[in-house]
Design a protein around this nucleic acid. Structure first.
Lengths: 358, 358
DNA sequence: TGATGGTGATTAAACGCTTTAGCAGATTGG
DNA sequence: CCAATCTGCTAAAGCGTTTAATCACCATCA
């Protein structure tokens, strides 16, 4: 633990209030000298090579030296010599606005660590230039591969430099053949959302869809249809409305919704549901007694804390991140074609109640 | 662009549907050979050393070789030889639940990149074991230093291994002398929140504080007092209430609030304000006409989309991240003592209106 | 003419580690 | 008793860079 620069034991005068100047990191060689062995020997015990023939005596001496000196291997030197880095890159387009990217990161990190990889993350906030720099940085660190993720499910184009590495698209996809991708299963999610309502006896169920085109818009609608039809209910186009997918949109849809005489409504997302709550309340209607509501996305801050707490369908961001890593590493059996679709689980809270028999 | 393993031009049969097997990264040596010069020469032109004497002719040949081969420097080799890595570690305790950590990351990354550093991020989700592993990983990558961040402002203890590196606490602090820290200026924030109300003519202003102890609880209250007193209004203890700092808490505080006969209320955070909105609406009261409301935190999903949009005070997470990096790198002049306090700007929306003269 | 200086490059060592081949000495086998 | 085998360890090469030292060549100058 002795600094090579300052063996006097007194704090450097140059940095009086600062933390003590860090010693140069301890190297293998220093451990070797301290233990009176060669660096090769130290390396062998550090890496617990079973095959290596080292006496228990020596092993012990080395381990003590390691402990005494506080040795930490230099991962960069290891990567250099092993020829392959232990990094996986993750570029995200919006880490700072929703927790969605955070959940992807969380999942990716857990899975990556499980396989001995560290995550190199870059946040681009939609800035193309930053993105290019970020990918360049990852390429220079010779990452094992790159996860290219977006905060909402959408088509994307593959940046040129991305192609210099192995990559997987996460929560987005590209037409480009050979571009592997993981996305949420919107259709199944839409089906699940509708089934929650169906299960409680609702038959006339409205769907407030988004106005803006997106895979979610089509998928969630289709899921709604499928669930209805599986119950023998004919799809009624009049029951699907459209609004801008945020609180204001949901609020604004209230009037149109009430004209439909439904007992339940499935909203494109939680934010719309939040707005709708306000609209419904203004009309003196109570949830879930007068009308049942389900959302989509499971945005905790909103869904779990609305009054009553909102039943919704969860976007599997954590799983997307984890599955992205597995796909990158080739651990899942390869998809026959198209993106891998991840299941969207439903989370039931209190915005749906069994329909009282008429 | 020619793979050493497969020069036939046909895709490897081993990976029919997969992406083409990546070629081994191009090295300096290969560029040197292609350009007919030594590796030293290539290195010199890559790094644009002004001092180096290289003919334009050679420079051009080298650059062409670089372009043709698609050369990218190996950052790990660079770090190795330069003796110091270009990494800054950032450990966060909750990236997956709120966007707060995301904003810290965003700020830290921008500032780090500005100085040529890449961010090595680890999410611990409050798991001590993960945290230890994360710090170990960063230490092995010989990071320049570590930013240890928490998602809400609180005291923390410094994990032992953290001390092996330079570090800065971000959004948290420790008694430990020499532990540098950056935190939000809660007192100023509380003052600002109150001033928004004062500025619009309000005099009887309630404060719904949190029940759980935290620097924010004390600081925001003190700011409230200071702002009041600066206006010559004597602090009335009866006007400060306490509730659990979430939606339910805010909702539950409605009744107590209405007993106080105030024209405005300042909530400990946006989530409480959200609950309070519900409570007020149920009482048939309108915001901001019957009562003005300000929150704290500026949680976008909530504050910007409540009806009416909530005026609030922003927690400067982005700035915390950036300032953390600057402090780590020793770019800001050192604080005389205690954590550096970052300004909390107010963001005015529509939940406050000038008080009509009585 | 020989010293001096400038130009444009190269050589070689070093960074911290892994790993293969090999060495010396002890033990065993025939 | 010598060869073969085993045991415990080390020497040295190599990973992809950077950089100080050096070199060959040519022009200039006294």
């Amino acid at each position: 633990m002795i600094s090579q620069e300052n063996t006097s034991g007194t704090p450097s005068a140059a940095a009086p209030l600062q933390q003590a100047r860090r010693a140069q990191p301890v190297t293998l060689r220093q451990v070797a000298e301290a233990a009176g062995v060669s660096t090769a020997t130290v390396s062998l015990v550090v890496n617990k090579k079973k095959a290596a023939r080292i006496s228990d005596e020596t092993r012990k001496r080395v381990r003590e030296a390691i402990r005494d000196l506080g040795y930490r291997p230099n991962a960069m030197a290891q990567n250099l010599v092993s020829g392959s880095s232990r990094f996986i890159g993750l570029v995200a387009d919006a880490i700072a606005t929703t927790p969605f990217a955070g959940q992807i990161i969380h999942g990716a990190q857990d899975e990556a660590w499980k396989h001995g990889y560290a995550l190199l993350i870059a946040n681009t906030e939609g800035n193309r230039e930053l993105e290019t720099d970020a990918i360049a940085m990852m390429l220079e660190y010779k990452v094992r591969g790159i996860l290219y993720s977006t905060w909402f499910h959408r088509p994307t184009d593959v940046p040129d430099s991305l192609r210099e590495s192995d990559f997987v698209l996460v929560n987005c996809f590209a037409e480009e053949p050979g571009a592997r991708a993981v996305v949420p299963d919107e259709v199944q999610g839409g089906r699940s959302a509708t089934e929650v309502l169906l299960k409680h006896g609702h038959r006339r169920i409205a769907f407030i869809n988004a106005t803006i085109p997106a895979p979610a818009k089509d998928g969630r609608l289709q899921g709604y249809r499928e669930a209805l039809e599986a119950e023998g209910i004919t799809f009624d186009e009049d029951l699907v409305m459209e609004a801008y997918p945020d609180q204001e949109g949901g609020y604004g849809a209230t009037e149109a919704l009430l004209k439909r005489d439904v007992t339940a409504v499935y909203c494109y997302n939680d934010r719309m549901a939040m707005g709708l709550y306000d609209g419904l309340r203004e009309q003196g209607l109570s949830i879930p007694d007068d009308i049942a509501v389900v959302g989509f996305d499971n945005q905790e801050v909103i869904a779990a804390h609305l009054r009553p707490p909102l039943s919704t369908v969860s976007l599997p961001h954590y799983e997307l991140g984890a599955a992205g890593v597995r796909m990158l590493l080739g651990l899942d059996e390869p998809q026959s074609s198209g993106p891998e679709k991840i299941y969207c689980p439903t989370v039931e809270r209190n915005s749906v109640r069994a329909l009282a028999p008429a």
